[in-house]
Design a protein around this nucleic acid. Sequence first.
DNA 1: TATTTGCGAAACCGAAAAGTTGCACATATA
DNA 2: TATATGTGCAACTTTTCGGTTTCGCAAATA
Lengths: 106, 106
Amino acid sequence: MRRDIFQAIADPTRRAIIALIALQAMTPNAIAENFNTTRQAVSKHLRILTECELVKQESQGREIYYSLEIEKMKEIDKWLEQYRKIWETRFNQLDQVLSNLKKQNK
Amino acid sequence: MRRDIFQAIADPTRRAIIALIALQAMTPNAIAENFNTTRQAVSKHLRILTECELVKQESQGREIYYSLEIEKMKEIDKWLEQYRKIWETRFNQLDQVLSNLKKQNK
DNA sequence: TATTTGCGAAACCGAAAAGTTGCACATATA
DNA sequence: TATATGTGCAACTTTTCGGTTTCGCAAATA
């Protein structure tokens, strides 16, 4: 099952998990405590996140710590870049209009 | 059915539609020509995109032109901001490590 | 007016997703 | 060694999703 990062962040629970483990690694049980679902459901989400390399795991005895692979998040940023260019251009055009209006008033 | 912008961009066809109409407004038929599906399927995607205000429509006779609501894209950017902070911090920390190593070599 | 064209909406279908339950396995702990 | 704990995985169910087909409606055109 080939997962996509955009599909991965589509689910609100997964976005919440991402936010949770962004700053510190956590075990599935600890993560599940924050949600209204079973540990297995969280485990499934973690698997999906791991599959698309948004999350990495580190075993420590029988516990497994999950943490965010922050580098992967840049892919979204990269995709957004083309649109950022557009809104910045539009902003500059608006800026141009405003400054032209200013000149006319002088 | 309450739609979410993250769910909207999860589908690859919808991302392609977004890219298509980012620079110029297009009719459903014109959009559908670029894909291997029916116009109705595209129409469905456009409805979803419209529901979460990622796309706006403008009627002109019997044709309806769809264009990207670029402002809405900023929501993704805004969400990404918290993670951008993280990877920038990590980068600076790495930078710190590197410059410390440099000092030690002197 | 009759016909074509552009479109959305509803009904339906198959595939995929998200959740639950039950189980197996390894690692701790008594 | 027996038991408790942390975990992943597989089977199953329900819901959602993306697509097609069919239809109805309004605007353009003959």
